[in-house]
Design a binder for these strands. Structure first.
Length: 478
DNA sequence: CTAGGGTTAG
């Protein structure tokens, strides 16, 4: 077209941009758009933002956005969607606020991205407010899916079940969200029952649906059922097991103590095992105290992911527990040499629309003294009813948090105590954290729900724990 | 009578 001297217009570019497959490609297109003076067209602009975002170039996307003189809702939606999809919920919400301030109307697409931002930040309160706006629109499948996912990820299964039952149209994504959501929140049997009704009433399951099903089996310890689905997924649903399915099954076998079978399966995998695969095995080694295999798995992880701080810490603790001090020193040296630092444990809780963060060894919270005093009282009371601070794990300090001297100050304990102090009794205390919960905090949370008669939900990077009446929805299996 | 934005796992 250019060779023949035909001048491209905005229609041309908004179509061609969608076919763009790389950054150098895109830069060329962008500069010729500027040359023809077409960058002010809203269609071209939203396409540019979209493509920069798909290539992970968020700063460039933002740059295009900020040069906007005349815009429309779609351009705003593009930039909000870009940040929401790249897990920068904060920025997505900030831009959403500006959009409203400047008087642009909100539509289904805007709300979908805003809900996704709420999901990644675990902002249930804001999500509930957005839900009110959702009701102004006719039922919209994608928007409902985002709402459903928000409730699942924020640990509010009552709301999720309600939305799911009321959706007039459900696709494979709706079913997959609900199945995985139930499984992650500890309702494995409900997840499997839902999958059974999906087979009768719903669409054909896909790759991700099966992952949710295997996840449910693994977290409920249903070895036979999980193994059956894994073995027959190709025949029943026409889906070849991928790396993630193997990961779930290795987790399933490993948790059940079948470490040899798990190792055997890793060697039989059709795709190359990755760090996630080995981490599943390592988790099982930790639970079942298999030191040699733990060391082996940790080394495999570090080959594939040399920056994984948690694995270094774990490996060095494994050596320490076997009095292999030279190996301990070696691991610490490698870690320092590669500039890897362990992430401190951090927990967040939303109180009166304010996020409060508790970071290990950080005392900047204004009420930290009161919280610590209260925490000591609780620990004292709990010891009276049989709580034993668990400072004696064989493989301690999994993520840099589980040290005996700091056990009391684990961020989730502080967040729980703060929640009890500041959230009214009938409301659920909801906490989310960056690392997995440790055995001691888990025991602490269970007992405190009993003596205080509270409901606590803790979301960690992998799953959710619903504590009530002294028990946890995970059945102490995580 | 040719263009644009939104949802699931890891």
């Amino acid at each position: 077209m250019l060779r023949e001297g035909v001048k491209p217009n905005m229609f041309t570019y908004s179509s061609v941009l969608r076919a763009c497959d790389g950054l150098s490609n895109l830069r060329q297109l962008h500069s010729s758009i500027m040359k023809y003076g077409l960058e002010s067209d809203t269609f071209v602009r939203s396409a540019l933002i979209d493509i920069y975002s798909k290539l992970g170039e968020l700063q460039n996307a933002l740059h295009v956005f900020h040069e906007m003189v005349t815009g429309d809702s779609v351009v705003w939606n593009s930039i909000i969607g870009a940040f929401a999809q790249h897990s920068d919920g904060d920025e997505a919400l900030n831009i959403y606020k500006s959009m409203k301030r400047e008087g642009f109307p909100t539509d289904q697409s805007t709300l979908t991205s805003v809900l996704r931002a709420c999901t990644s930040l675990s902002l249930l309160e804001l999500g509930l407010q957005i839900h009110v706006h959702v009701l102004k629109f006719n039922q919209d499948l994608i928007l409902n899916n985002a709402l459903l996912d928000m409730y699942c990820k924020c640990g509010s299964l009552e709301d999720a079940n309600f939305i799911f039952s009321r959706m007039v149209e459900k696709d494979v994504i709706s079913w997959s969200i609900m199945i995985a959501g139930l499984a992650q929140n500890g309702f494995s049997l409900e997840a499997l029952n839902l999958f059974k009704s999906m087979k009768v009433f719903g669409p054909k399951p896909n790759y991700i649906t099966i992952l949710g099903v295997l996840f449910a089996c693994s977290h409920a310890g249903l070895v036979n059922e999980g193994w059956y689905y894994f073995q027959s997924m190709k025949k029943l649903f026409g889906i070849d097991p991928g790396r993630e399915h193997y990961g779930c099954i290795i987790d399933l076998l490993g948790r059940a103590g079948k470490l040899d079978d798990a190792v055997k399966l890793i060697h039989e995998m059709k795709c190359e095992p990755d760090a996630v695969t080995w981490r599943a095995l390592l988790g099982a080694c930790r639970v079942h105290r298999n030191l040699d295999l733990a060391i082996y798995s940790a080394k495999q992880i570090l080959k594939l992911d040399p920056e994984d701080a948690g694995t270094y810490v774990l490996l060095s603790n494994i050596y320490a527990n076997s009095q292999r001090w030279e190996d301990v020193a070696e691991v610490r040296k490698t870690m320092r040499g590669r500039g890897v630092r362990k992430e401190p444990g951090c927990s967040w809780i939303e109180v009166n629309k304010q996020i409060h963060a508790f970071i290990l060894r950080d005392n900047s919270h204004p009420q930290i003294h009161e919280i610590n005093r209260k925490l000591s009282q609780f620990i004292h009371t709990l010891i009276g009813v049989g709580y034993v601070p668990d400072t004696n794990f064989v493989l301690q300090d999994l993520e840099g948090e589980q040290r005996a001297d700091s056990l009391q100050y684990h961020s989730e304990k502080l967040a729980i105590v703060f929640g009890i102090m500041s959230i009214s009794r009938e409301k659920t205390i909801r906490i989310w954290k960056n690392l997995r919960i440790c055995g001691d905090c888990h025991a602490f949370a269970k007992l405190i729900t009993k003596i205080e008669n509270r409901h606590i939900v803790i979301r960690d990077p992998v799953r959710y724990h619903h504590f009530k009446d002294g028990v946890c929805s995970c059945g102490d299996y995580w």
